[in-house]
Amino acid sequence: MADDDLGALIARVSLKDRQSFNLLYQKASPKLFAICLRILGDRGEAEDALQDIFVRIWQRAGTFASDGRSPSGWLATVARNHAIDRLRQKKPAARDIDAVHDLADGKESPEERAHLVGEGRRIDTCMERLKPEWASAVKEAYVSGLSYNELAERYGVPLNTMRTWLRRSLLKLKECLEA
């Protein structure tokens, strides 16, 4: 459709002529929809945006004056600006730095790290007080995840003996760590 015809339709739409608006929609909507789809990247969003754009055109047709501006350019600008506005609305707003000062960075603090290192040393010291095979069995059970059966086979002892080793080892560790 020629720009002159679009200009005349926009002028009649500014007078709230519904038939002209319907014709303008039929003629301009494919191009405006393509603009919305390209910017928004989602068909449903583009369809919603197109409806909003034509509401704006209905409301603002009187602001278009054929003083040398291209009617198709004006329509495309309305569509483009609205699609960009919708895109901006979807982006999360930047947070105020004062509002996020308490967010954790996910890393342990130096105090926490020092505490963990100290606890690790205490556990190592207590583990050294156990019989070597008991300490080894505790590590394999609670660090490596071996079952009682696997440990009993590995150390060549009956299953109940292995359970006793682990139980006594844990009691001695608890006693040592509480001291």
Rank of each mutant, 00 (worst) to 15 (best):
4 D>C: 07
4 D>Q: 11
5 D>A: 12
6 L>R: 07
7 G>A: 14
9 L>R: 04
10 I>A: 08
11 A>E: 12
13 V>S: 06
16 K>F: 04
16 K>G: 07
17 D>T: 00
20 S>L: 06
25 Y>G: 08
25 Y>E: 05
26 Q>A: 12
28 A>Y: 06
30 P>Y: 04
30 P>M: 07
32 L>T: 05
33 F>R: 03
38 R>Y: 05
40 L>F: 05
42 D>F: 04
44 G>R: 12
45 E>C: 09
46 A>H: 03
47 E>S: 11
52 D>G: 15
53 I>S: 01
56 R>G: 10
58 W>C: 09
64 F>Y: 15
64 F>M: 10
68 G>P: 05
69 R>D: 09
70 S>M: 11
73 G>W: 09
74 W>P: 08
84 I>A: 04
85 D>C: 03
85 D>N: 09
85 D>S: 07
87 L>G: 02
88 R>C: 01
92 P>W: 04
92 P>H: 06
94 A>V: 13
95 R>Q: 13
95 R>E: 11
98 D>K: 15
99 A>M: 03
99 A>R: 09
100 V>D: 14
102 D>C: 12
103 L>E: 10
103 L>T: 04
109 S>Q: 00
109 S>W: 03
112 E>H: 11
116 L>E: 14
121 R>V: 07
122 R>K: 14
123 I>Q: 02
124 D>P: 00
127 M>L: 15
127 M>D: 08
127 M>I: 13
128 E>K: 14
129 R>Y: 05
130 L>K: 00
131 K>M: 06
131 K>E: 14
131 K>T: 09
133 E>K: 11
135 A>F: 09
138 V>F: 13
140 E>L: 15
140 E>Y: 06
146 L>D: 04
146 L>A: 08
147 S>R: 08
147 S>F: 12
147 S>V: 03
148 Y>T: 15
151 L>C: 01
151 L>Q: 03
155 Y>P: 06
158 P>Y: 04
159 L>A: 13
162 M>Y: 01
166 L>E: 00
167 R>Y: 12
170 L>K: 14
174 K>C: 01
174 K>M: 10
